[in-house]
Design a protein around this nucleic acid. Structure first.
Lengths: 179, 179, 179, 179
DNA sequence: AATGAATGAGCGTTCATTCAT
DNA sequence: CATGAATGAACGCTCATTCAT
């Protein structure tokens, strides 16, 4: 990859990351290109769909977030590992203004985005749930996707207290069994 | 209030209700005024903020939804009454395309909207929670507002299965108590 | 119609006529609105399709051109009347830069335009052809539409000599009969 | 000429021919370079003007079309040879989407194009006209260029019926003499 | 009080052309 | 010589809001 291309790509990803942080993921395209000092065409060349840019911007962080599950699994007992990681995942989402909305918007501009995130995160939460269920700490009839989506729904970037309380409630729901 | 003013107001509310149902609450203003056979200025006179129109449109239904809690309380035991009403409330939100998003969007156009809904619904859910806690069916350390907001977060108009499963999980979380 | 609306409409039609003359009928919309000192929306309100604007701009002139056939019919013998009017029609088209191309472009922006022009002109040329054929001056097996289209094809705004020579040839073709 | 240069040139010509066939002669440049697996700069090096590319692409076919006149002249009597060749020429143009329009568009991108085609075709039609006039089958006061241009004007790729009828009329015009 | 025409900034997107690599 | 990434002006169009009528 040519160095100037690399430079432009980096500039775009950096600019997009900053803009996404402050303005959310559906900020005007022009703001990103302006910040990156790059023509509009350059952005469209690298990221024909807005979803492609979002995915690219968050890919590393997504991977890191997914990886974190291993550490929790290794260090904590299963239910605690699950709990920790869900909170970790919530923080991840909270930092991405507008991502939550985009994920379930149905807007064609975001096509492919939910799929990408699911592919990465569903296995992670599935494993955590299985381990916790195997340990007898939670019930085993809850789908990984539901949990993932629930956390995404519940995240409130501006109200961490609420998010934490709801996560507790959600995990308690997983712990609850009939009786 | 002059009769023609009254007529215009009614036309606007009716039109907006229909448009909101089909196109969601951030449908173009013009579609509403066109359907109501009313000038754009007339709408802005009565509802300076889009939130005002939404609140007005849904006021009656909000009231009805809140009232329904009484019936549930009278007919069911406390936890069941709570559960029933939360599902009722979820259906109410599911029917209002885009309302959920608008409620937490932070968009200045929707200023005042969350407050209005809270004023009406928080007391309702507070009462249901208190009764259920008093009966020993659920714990007592969960804030009404949190529950309300959680249901709004969780509602998925196009995926009732998910909504129902999550409501179950949420209520189970309320039932869970430490041990 | 309110006077300001009338004024804007006039400004638009005048501006469009001027722009069409110099830049052709697919000049950028913005150039027209700029010249008319009018917002883009105003143009779109009155003329949702570009074809609508073109039709409106040329309507009066189209009518005048069609009407002219009467005078020729009244004053000249049939074949001469036909000949004169075809040249008149050619001049009309020559003055409308790009109209010819637009008429047969298939571009959806020009939808409805050919139809409008045909509706107006086909009867005119049909009558002229019939009269000329009745007088024995030309053959009777040529379709009005073909003649109309042929003239449109042949018109060369920048080369009146060519246009005139070809018109002669075309009319001679009409005069020719087998032997 | 270096073999790689030759290869690129061939690829460009082949690609352009295919694209012109399907998308017309003002298809985006990029589509051509992409199909040829060649950089944009390579195209611009060889064909600084779009017209240069068009001329190069059609050169062989132009030559073949011009050559065909000889065969007609040899096999048919003069007027018939003329008639046949004009229809042949019309088919040639009809197959080149957008060429007709480009020829008389005045667009600077097509600069030089008309000249190239004239150089090749005018002598051909001149000879055919002369022969036909010499045989007494047609008049002798019509310029070759006019006939050529008229055919180009008249060609309608999507309406062969019209094209044929107009060609007949045109040739009849040539046959007509005063009378 | 009501109208609804007008505004015009703002959007996403395309594409001929240039020029660093 | 060739590449192909980058440019960036230009386009058509939308729509919340204002304000002359």
């Amino acid at each position: 990859m040519r160095p100037d291309v690399r430079r432009n790509l980096d500039a775009l990803l950096t600019a997009a990351a900053e803009i996404f942080e402050t303005d959310g993921v559906d900020a005007p395209v022009r703001r990103i290109t302006a910040r990156a000092n790059v023509g509009a065409g350059t952005l469209y060349r690298h990221f024909p769909q807005r979803a492609d840019l979002i995915a690219a911007v968050f890919r590393r962080e997504v991977d890191a977030c997914a990886e974190a599950a291993r550490a929790f699994s290794a260090q904590e007992e299963p239910v605690e590992a699950l709990s920790r990681w869900l909170r970790h995942f919530a923080r991840f989402l909270a930092a991405k203004r507008g991502l939550k909305t985009a994920l379930h918007s149905g807007d064609p501009a975001y096509e492919g985005l939910p799929e990408y995130f699911q592919q990465r995160f569903v296995p992670v939460v599935a494993e955590l749930l299985d381990a916790a269920a195997a340990s007898g700490g939670i019930r085993s009839d809850v789908a990984p996707y539901d949990v993932l989506r629930a956390v995404a729904d519940i995240v409130a970037p501006d109200d961490d207290g609420y998010t934490q309380r709801l996560l507790t409630l959600l995990i308690d729901g997983l712990r609850y069994r009939g009786g």
